[in-house]
């Protein structure tokens, strides 16, 4: 991802609406996907995306290019807000997963049956992820879905590194055990 054009940054600081539209076109996809992974619903993810950009607008004066790249700064702000919103959501219900989000990534070395099985397995895993307790879900979201290092996840969640490691392992194990149990009940799929 490219860094930010200084002129665009200046116009955004001035509150230029067209500049904000351009900024969201350039960086909104990544922020929206982060929000979606935490909230699990498109409508909530859009609300959170808007809140994140409003927050960025209010904090933009504090950003200095010497602090690091703009996308990295933006994603840090976005991640903190997404975690905060996720934790504040009282209704910790199982959210409906959008099937489009879990569409199989095409793979050239597998047949249609394997592809179907893998897709089904992926849906199963993601449904399982939604039903995990928040303490186990958060490290999985940050490390496995967002690709953060353990250290970055520990910093974002404000918990010790060892706690992130153990919760990540426990979350993965829980999902793996459910997968094995489901296979035991219904054969090779999921």
């Amino acid at each position: 991802m490219s860094d930010i054009d200084p002129d665009l940054l200046r116009r955004c600081r001035e509150g230029d609406q067209a500049a904000w539209r351009d900024l969201v076109i350039e960086h909104g996809r990544r922020v929206f996907n982060l929000a979606y992974r935490f909230m699990g619903r498109v409508d909530e993810a859009e609300d959170v995306t808007q809140e994140i950009f409003v927050k960025v607008y209010r904090a933009l004066d504090s950003y200095r290019p010497s602090d690091g790249s703009f996308p990295a700064w933006l994603m840090t702000v976005a991640r903190h807000h997404a975690i905060d919103r996720y934790r504040r959501r009282r209704d910790d219900r199982l959210v409906a997963e959008d099937p489009a989000a879990l569409a199989a990534v095409p793979s050239s070395d597998e047949g249609p049956l394997q592809s179907l099985e893998r897709e089904e397995r992926k849906r199963f895993v993601h449904r399982g992820l939604r039903s995990l307790p928040a303490t186990l879900r958060e490290p999985l979201l940050l490390c496995d879905l967002e690709g953060l290092s353990l250290e970055e996840a520990a910093s974002s969640l404000d918990i010790p590194l060892g706690t992130v490691k153990s919760r990540l392992n426990r979350g993965r194990l829980e999902l793996a055990k459910r997968l094995l149990a489901a296979r035991g009940r219904s054969g090779p799929t999921p």
């Binding site: 969201v24 929206f32 808007q50 992926k122 895993v125 999902l175």
Partner: peptide, 26 residues
Amino acid sequence: EVVEDLRRVPEMAPPAGLPERVAAAV
């Protein structure tokens, strides 16, 4: 398999009109 499935989630396209709505919110 679990970790592989978690890591291979494709990116979703944001809803149409999101940039305009964000600009208005800002």
